[in-house]
Design a protein around this nucleic acid. Structure first.
Lengths: 329, 329
DNA sequence: CTGTTAGCGCCTTCAG
DNA sequence: CTGAAGGCGCTAACAG
C-alpha cells in the first residue's frame, strides 16, 4: 500500500506538501503541485481515510438511523429511497454514511445508545421514521448529543433540524381535490397511529378541509395497518361516500374490503408508493419525494456540521394519480 | 473523549495492559483485569475504532455492493432483506458494513473501481445482483482483488465464494409441482435475461422438468420485465395451459394480461416477494430467504478473512403459495 | 511557499 | 505478568 511518504519521496517534496495538494490548499506553487500530482498518478496513490480521520478527529461520518417497524414492502421502497438519496449525496459531498437499523437500538437505554453511536464513530445522525415512542432518542436530541436531522417529525434544537412535507397542507390538498371531484356528503377518514407526529398533522389537514367545505367527517385510527383499515371500512364505509386514507397501504386495505363488500366508494391514499399501482383502480394520492427528502437531509447535516443551527425544512408535495400502466417496466 | 490513556492512568496501569484487557488477551492477572474493568466502567470508555483500525491495519469492514437496475419495489424488498441480514450479522461478528450502490461504480473502469474500493477502505466485498455484463467486477474477482462473496452468480476463486439457491432444482420443483397440480399439455415459460446467470439455471430446470414429464415447452425471454411478460402472454398464452415465470414480477405481468385477455391460465412465479400478495389470485412461487442468504454471505466472508478458500454455498428453497391474507398486517 | 515535527489513539513487540 | 516505546498514515502548526 503506497503512503503519503512514498509520494513525497517520489516527488522530492515534504509530506505536508503532498497533504496540501491532496486537500486542495492554495498555498502550493503550481510547479510543485504538478510534480506531486504526477507522483500521485504514477504511484496510484489512494489516501488512507482512516489515518486522516484519526488525525483530524473529524469523522465526516453520518449515521442513517432507519426505523423498521415491520418488514413491509411498502416501507422497503421508502427506506430504500432514503438510503439511496443519502448515500448518493454523501458521495458527492465526501461524507461517509453507515446505516443503522433501529433493531440495533432496541432495548437499549439512552446511555447505551449514546455509547453505541460513539463506538460507531458517527459525527452526525439522520433519523428516518422516528416515532413519539422512541423516548431514548428524544433524550439524545434534547441533550444535543450530535448534529442531527429528523425526517418526518417536528424536532428541532440548537443542532437539530427536521425536514418534512407540510402534512397539514398536503392532506388538505388531496381532500379538497377529492371533494371537488366527487362531491361527497360524508367522508370516512382512516388516520395513522393515535398521537403520532405525521398522523396528527394529516388529521388536522383533513379536518380543516372538511370544515372549509362543510362536509361531515368520520375519522378513525387505523394505525397504518391494512388489516385495521379493512375492518374500519367494513364498519363505516357503507355510511360514507368517500374514503380518505393517511397512507397508501391503508388505502389498499380499504379498497380490498370495498371489493369484498361489493360496493364502490372513491378512495385516496398518501405517500405515492409503487405498490399502489398494483391494485386494480386508478387511485389518487399525495406524492412525496423520499429520495429528495433524504438528499436535503444530508445537505442539512452539512450545514449543521459547519456550525449552522437547527431549522425546519419543508419539502414540496404533489397530488397525483397512479395506475398499473404508470409503474410497470 | 476519554482515551485509553485516561483509563490506564485511572487504573494505575500501563496502556498496553488496558489494550490487552480490551482485546481479551489471557496474559493479564485477574486482579489487574478487575481494576482496568472498573476504570473503564467508571470513565465510560469507548475505544476508538479508527485508531484501532489504523494501528492494526485491519479494517474488518465489508462493502455491500448492491446492484440497482431500476428502482422497483420488488427489488427494494429483496435488497432491503439483503442489507438487513448482512448488517445484523455483521453487528454480531463485530464487522462493519458499508453499502455501495452500483450507481457509484457506473462508468468506471476496473482501475477506477479498484481505487474506489481502496479509498473506501473495505477489506472484503459482497456482491448482490451481479450480472454477466459487469465485466469490470469480473476482472476484479479474477485477479483476486479482495476476499469476496457473490450472491446469486456462480463465481468462485481462491478467495471468492458464492452463495445461491439451486435454481435448477428450484425451478424444476415448482414446474413439477404445477404439472402435477394442473396436468398441462403445453407450458409457456417466461425466462429472465438472455444469457443471465440465474436465468440460465432456471431455464434449465424448466427444461428438465418438461423432459421428465414429457410436456411441451414454449420458452421466451421476458427480461424480468412485467411489460415484456404481458406482451409474451398476449402472444402465446392462448396456446398454452400453464404459465411458468422466472420471477414474481413477470408472473404479475402475465396475470394482468390474462385478465385483460379474459382467459384463465394457472401461473406461478419465482422469488416469494410480498408484492405477490397484492394481486387477486392465490399464486404458487419459489420462496428464497434473502435475509438468510445475506447472513450466510457474511459468515462466508468471515471464513475467507480467516484464510479459508473460495467455496460454493447452496441455500435451501421452498415452494409456497401466497395470497393477500398472508401478507397483510 | 516548503519541509520538519509533533501528535491523533491504539496495538504490539520486547525487555524487565 | 506488566509497562515503555515505536510505529500505523495523515494533518497541522511552526519555523525556515
Amino acid at each position: 500500500m503506497v503512503t503519503i511518504n512514498d509520494v513525497a519521496k517520489k516527488a522530492g517534496v515534504g509530506v505536508s506538501t503532498v497533504s496540501k495538494v491532496m486537500n486542495n490548499y492554495d498555498n502550493v506553487s503550481a510547479a510543485t503541485k504538478m510534480k506531486v500530482m504526477a507522483a500521485i498518478e504514477e504511484l496510484d496513490y489512494v489516501p488512507n481515510s482512516i489515518a486522516s480521520a484519526l488525525s483530524t478527529k473529524n469523522s465526516k461520518r453520518i449515521g442513517l438511523v432507519v426505523y423498521i417497524n415491520n418488514h413491509r414492502q411498502a416501507i422497503d421502497e421508502i427506506n430504500m429511497q432514503y438510503l439511496f438519496g443519502a448515500t448518493n449525496r454523501s458521495l458527492e459531498l465526501n461524507y461517509e454514511v453507515i446505516t443503522i437499523f433501529s433493531t440495533e437500538l432496541q432495548g437499549k437505554n439512552t446511555q447505551e445508545i449514546r455509547r453505541h453511536f460513539q463506538s460507531l464513530r458517527v459525527g452526525a445522525l439522520i433519523f428516518y421514521g422516528l416515532s413519539k415512542e422512541n423516548k431514548e432518542i428524544h433524550e439524545l436530541l434534547e441533550e444535543d448529543f450530535l448534529p442531527s436531522v429528523v425526517v418526518d417529525a417536528p424536532f428541532s434544537g440548537p443542532r437539530t433540524s427536521y425536514v418534512m412535507v407540510d402534512h397539514i397542507q398536503a392532506q388538505y390538498d388531496i381532500v379538497e381535490h377529492m371533494i371537488k371531484k366527487h362531491q361527497p356528503k360524508k367522508i370516512l377518514y382512516l388516520a395513522g397511529r393515535r398521537n403520532g407526529y405525521v398522523t396528527d398533522f394529516r388529521l388536522q389537514g383533513a379536518v380543516n378541509a372538511c370544515l372549509d367545505y362543510n362536509i361531515e367527517l368520520n375519522a378513525h385510527y387505523a394505525n397504518f395497518s391494512e388489516k385495521e383499515a379493512m375492518a374500519l371500512t367494513s364498519e363505516y364505509a357503507q355510511d360514507a361516500d368517500l374514503i380518505v386514507c393517511a397512507s397508501d397501504l391503508m388505502a389498499i386495505g380499504a379498497i380490498s374490503e370495498l371489493k369484498k363488500m361489493d360496493i364502490f366508494r372513491p378512495v385516496c391514499g398518501y405517500d405515492g408508493i409503487t405498490l399502489l399501482g398494483y391494485i386494480e383502480y386508478r387511485i389518487d394520492t399525495v406524492k412525496q419525494d423520499f429520495y429528495k427528502i433524504s438528499v436535503d437531509a444530508i445537505d442539512e447535516i452539512g450545514r449543521l456540521l459547519e456550525g449552522g443551527s437547527g431549522e425546519a425544512i419543508t419539502m414540496p408535495h404533489e397530488i397525483i394519480s397512479i395506475q398499473y400502466e404508470d409503474i410497470i417496466l
